[in-house]
């Protein structure tokens, strides 16, 4: 699908990425300061993937996410305040404080949840796509998963059924080179997860996951195919996690080298894209700074909202178990 890259699309892609980056950096600080309990898996470095895909989706299109899910929800239209409140464990959070980082979700936005189980998302996304087809809509489901999840049986069962039923689903593999702390070469015998598409009768496409425009264009084609009833696609986005599997450390990790991180940081998706926007005269440096400042102000408001919100009452524990 040849979507013309208008200025407004480019600015939209930029804003989505900046919103994710700023939110994640702040959330990391909040976790370090003890305001956010539990485990945070941050999306810093991978922003181009969520942003490039989500720019094609409406609220009636669904996504399933991963344990690294904040970026997906932000790109899908999630608001900072209920997100931050959820991470704080507050009653005003998107999940009333019952889900937290690993289960953050918003059904109205078609965001069927971050997922604490690696490989939890693919069967659910396949089911949502089945529903779209069954209900005769033109909606699609996008399933975000990692190179690690591509080794789970759930991925293979879901991919097979999606291919079999020609479902409107896009399996978006965020191949960041690591399944938790294990490098890809030590967890699978292939380099390109996209190779696995052939086994399920769907195209496998590889794209530079640090280039938001490349992701946007490739995702656009896959989503157009799905909407046209031509079935699923496996879209592999080569990307990198700037932080650790959990938390905010980037440097000095035992399972990867600082040099490797530095090499990938040269491909920072936001830096690269901002350079391009300036070069093409779409945004000036001052305008870019204004975008960052506006996002930062929104995040400050979200922190204030989260901090001033009440914790859930203990009486809420046994609520929402059943309809």
């Amino acid at each position: 699908m040849a979507v013309t890259l208008t200025d407004s699309i480019l600015k939209d892609l930029h804003l989505r990425m900046v919103r994710i980056r700023r939110f994640e950096e702040t959330a990391g600080k909040m976790m370090e300061s003890g305001k956010i309990p539990g485990a945070l898996h941050l999306y810093v470095g991978e922003e181009a993937v969520a942003s490039g895909v989500m720019a094609h989706l409406s609220n009636d299109d669904q996504i399933t996410s991963t344990h690294r899910g904040h970026g997906h929800l932000i790109a899908k239209g999630g608001e900072f305040s209920p997100m931050m409140a959820e991470l704080f464990g507050k009653a005003t959070g998107y999940c009333k404080g019952k889900g937290g980082s690993m289960h953050i979700s918003n059904m109205k936005l078609g965001m069927l949840g971050a997922n604490g189980i690696v490989g939890g998302g693919p069967p659910i996304a396949m089911g949502a796509a089945f529903s779209n087809k069954f209900r005769k809509t033109k909606n699609v489901a996008c399933c975000f998963f990692g190179d690690g999840a591509s080794n789970e049986g759930s991925f293979h069962e879901a991919a097979n059924m999606a291919g079999l039923y020609k479902l409107p689903v896009i399996f978006v593999c965020e191949n960041n080179g690591y399944g938790e702390y294990t490098p890809q070469r030590n967890h699978q015998a292939i380099v390109d997860v996209a190779d696995r598409a052939a086994g399920y009768g769907m195209p496998g496409v590889i794209v530079d996951g640090m280039d938001v425009v490349a992701v946007f264009e490739a995702a656009g084609e896959a989503i157009a195919r799905a909407r046209a009833g031509e079935g699923p696609t496996l879209l592999e986005c080569k990307t990198y996690r700037f932080y650790d599997h959990v938390g905010v450390r980037g440097m000095g990790l035992t399972y990867r080298t600082d040099d490797e991180l530095e090499e990938w940081k040269k491909k920072d998706p936001i830096d690269l894209f901002e350079g391009r926007l300036k070069e093409q005269g779409i945004l000036s440096e001052a305008e870019i700074q204004a975008v960052h400042a506006a996002v930062a102000a929104d995040i400050e408001k979200a922190i204030a909202f989260a901090e001033s919100s009440p914790f859930p009452d203990p009486s809420a524990i046994e609520q929402d178990v059943y309809a």
Binding site: Q62, T64, M107, L112, P122, P123, I124, A125, M126, G127, A128, A129, F130, S131, N132, F134, R135, A141, G153, S154, E157, A158, N160, M161
Partner: peptide
């Protein structure tokens, strides 16, 4: 594919089926 069958139900059930 039992994971697929139950997952199909989760995804479809949560979205109007």
């Amino acid at each position: 594919s039992e994971k697929g069958i139950i997952g199909l139900g989760v995804g479809a059930g949560a979205t109007g089926c």
